[in-house]
Simulated assay, not measured.
Amino acid sequence: MSAPVFAAAQCAVRAGDINSNLMLHMEFMRHAREHGVELLVFPELSLTGYEPALAEALVQDIDSPLLDPLRQLAQEVSMTTVVGLPLRLSSFEKPLIAAFVIHQDGSLGVYTKQHLHLGEEQYFSAGGGGDLLHIADTRIALSLCADFSQPEHPSHASEQGAQLYAASVLIGETGYPHDSVLLQNYARHHGMAVLMANHGGETGGWSAAGRSAFWDERGRCVAATQGTGNRLLVVSKRQNNWHGFETSVPVVPVAQQSALRR
């Protein structure tokens, strides 16, 4: 049985620029593959940025062709990738904050945010969550930002048998001390490792704190990124112990991205 290798993609995205952000996501995926990553988790609403006022204009269907390049690359690099977009479902009045799960075979799954921050209800409907993922003999529960502010959310994940709680978030400097301790305590209390993927730059008027992190089943912080920017946090488990490191992700300048799309 091979050791599991998971990663948080801490990215600095461009507001509402899905094409540029798509290119950035693909760079992260290629970089992650160099380190043998099997699960790559991006922050909340990673493909659009956290831009609630733009959600209605940027909302996508569950089978959006926008994701086709990511689905193809996921198959090429054999990596399950979790990315963020506003999702349109006919049974909901407003867009949902969604994590699209692009599996290694290119198939799609989805997790929708269950608990909204105050003010998000103006732009979004609350969703219903999603199923556990099973990757590298590990059961993984997803979470989108405010979900983890409700203790019953990680508690339910633990009761379902989750061994890893993967949180896609937007956390600023002011909230980071409280939120990071909360996630650390969940890891310790439930005996469930926690991976947190934060934004790496300003989005939606918020200055993200970066400092994506991983806590093991004892609540020990195994690894964290140093500050903001485009950083990849890679963790793996060998001989029942977790190990981790961070690495920077080279970014193609916007002018070159435009040339590549032509």
Rank of each mutant, 00 (worst) to 15 (best):
229 G>V: 01
40 L>G: 03
146 A>L: 00
42 F>M: 12
171 I>R: 05
242 W>V: 04
175 G>E: 13
27 E>F: 09
129 G>Q: 06
197 A>E: 09
1 M>F: 08
257 Q>N: 04
182 L>A: 08
105 D>H: 07
105 D>Y: 08
116 L>P: 11
249 V>N: 07
232 L>M: 12
252 V>E: 04
224 A>N: 07
233 L>S: 02
47 L>C: 14
180 S>R: 12
244 G>E: 04
168 S>N: 08
90 S>V: 04
111 Y>D: 09
113 K>F: 03
201 G>T: 03
165 Y>E: 01
34 E>P: 00
247 T>P: 01
141 A>N: 04
82 V>H: 07
149 S>V: 00
9 A>Q: 07
200 G>P: 08
191 G>C: 05
92 F>V: 07
166 A>H: 01
222 V>N: 02
177 P>I: 07
185 N>V: 01
91 S>N: 10
37 V>Y: 10
242 W>Y: 10
195 L>D: 02
13 V>N: 06
119 G>V: 02
208 A>W: 06
84 G>M: 05
24 L>Y: 07
142 L>W: 03
259 A>V: 13
142 L>D: 06
89 L>K: 13
154 P>Y: 10
76 E>P: 00
110 V>H: 04
120 E>I: 00
213 A>L: 05
84 G>H: 08
228 T>E: 07
133 L>C: 07
221 C>G: 00
175 G>C: 05
41 V>W: 01
101 V>I: 15
101 V>F: 10
5 V>Q: 04
7 A>H: 03
179 D>E: 14
15 A>E: 15
29 M>C: 10
106 G>N: 11
122 Q>W: 03
187 A>P: 01
252 V>H: 00
31 H>E: 15
43 P>V: 05
56 E>K: 15
6 F>C: 02
89 L>F: 02
147 D>H: 12
245 F>V: 00
82 V>A: 06
142 L>N: 04
10 Q>P: 08
13 V>K: 03
139 R>L: 11
134 H>R: 10
211 R>I: 05
222 V>K: 02
100 F>K: 12
19 N>G: 06
80 T>L: 08
122 Q>F: 11
199 H>A: 13
45 L>Y: 07
142 L>F: 04
34 E>K: 15
77 V>K: 04
43 P>R: 10
242 W>S: 03
236 S>C: 09
100 F>C: 05
183 L>T: 05
178 H>V: 13
96 L>A: 11
210 G>Y: 01
3 A>W: 05
90 S>A: 14
136 A>C: 12
122 Q>M: 11
32 A>C: 10
142 L>R: 03
68 D>Q: 13
85 L>G: 06
93 E>N: 04
9 A>Y: 05
133 L>S: 06
53 A>F: 10
118 L>F: 12
135 I>V: 15
